[in-house]
Design a protein around this nucleic acid. Structure first.
Lengths: 197, 197
DNA sequence: GTCTATACTTTGATAGAC
DNA sequence: GTCTATCAAAGTATAGAC
């Protein structure tokens, strides 16, 4: 079915983007990994590689935020949820030999100055994470500005830790990032209690 | 002179890596930007693009750490130095229309799973920053483990903030990263005083 | 030794057979 | 509508003129 081919192409592209980035991933590589004929890329994505890339970025962004929500729904203690999210990302990294990190981060740095439609797609994903993540922290009593600041610091720590961990093939940076995120969250929650009280 | 050509090639490559990344930068693009004949790349870098890339990564790593030391030598208050370093990086980003970030970060994510010599070069740079940065914080009274943790968190925050800032073409993430770095530093210094006292 | 011309591969994209 | 054959351009690398 056509939809299945489309799905396979999107999945294969996301996988390849994580390992090789946007410019490092060829359309021929993609159709080979998706077991699809070459022409099907342009059938399903008339805009070519750029359109396919943008859809993969947006789709991956949604999937990662769902994972974030899953963990925060399951863990009542926000500090433990924060720790669990970072260490879970680290565990995925480790079991895939430090290959499966965030497909958006790599693409974001590559295209920021060269491909405006794709830059906008990465910016949209990050802003969506920030807005929806901030809403969660507001639910814990944080002021809007404090909640937004905290989630921005999370994303920066997470993406930076992905970079360091993949380069070193070590979880050390992810563990230190987890500790920083927990400390920042604890301080923000404490601050909100002090202000309210 | 031969050395000048070599320098021009290294400078041009570093500049292009920041904007287009490793796979996105072609050798033809490099020699054009450096006003050098094509053959001179292989004359000065017999290992081709890979050797050139590794040298650029190591060289850029040294330059960025020198900048870090310059700022920390000039500012006696460590909290102000931390803030100044992050905001200075943000200012450079802004005046270059969010193009001139860290040439190592982009390359690091691209090559982590595809080019082992280059991955090792990026890992070497990050580890060098961490070791030498930690030495500075130990000088302020931090335990070795605490100093190492703090500088790792800095680098993660900085690289992550570069990513978010370039995607959004906004300094917001860099400003929040600066605040996080200052807060983490303040807490670490306080902790070391408490322990010593 | 500096540089030019070229070889060979792979890229994104398209036209047209079936 | 699915897929194959092919395009022009750009990629890295090399051979050889001067």
């Amino acid at each position: 079915m056509a939809t299945q081919t489309r799905e396979r192409i999107l999945d294969a592209t996301a996988e390849l983007f994580r390992r090789h980035g946007y410019t490092g991933t060829g359309l021929k590589q993609i159709v080979a990994a998706a077991s699809a004929p070459f022409g099907s890329v342009y059938h399903h994505f008339p805009g070519g590689k750029e359109q396919l890339g943008a859809e993969v970025v947006l789709r991956s962004g949604r999937m990662y935020f769902e994972l974030f929500e899953l963990i925060f729904d399951a863990e009542p203690d926000p500090l433990e949820a924060v720790r669990g999210f970072f260490l879970g990302a680290g565990e995925t990294l480790r079991v895939t030999d430090y290959a499966d990190a965030c497909p958006i981060g790599t693409v974001a740095l590559e295209v920021a100055s060269t491909n405006e439609p794709l830059r906008l797609a990465t910016a949209e994903v990050f802003e969506d994470w920030i807005v929806r993540g901030a809403a969660r922290f507001e639910g814990l009593g944080l002021e809007p500005a404090a909640a937004r600041a905290l989630i921005i610091q999370f994303v920066a720590l997470l993406e930076g830790a992905f970079m360091l961990a993949r380069a070193a093939k070590s979880l050390e940076a992810m563990e230190r990032a987890a500790e920083a995120a927990v400390a920042l969250t604890r301080a923000a929650l404490q601050q909100s209690v002090d202000t309210a009280g």
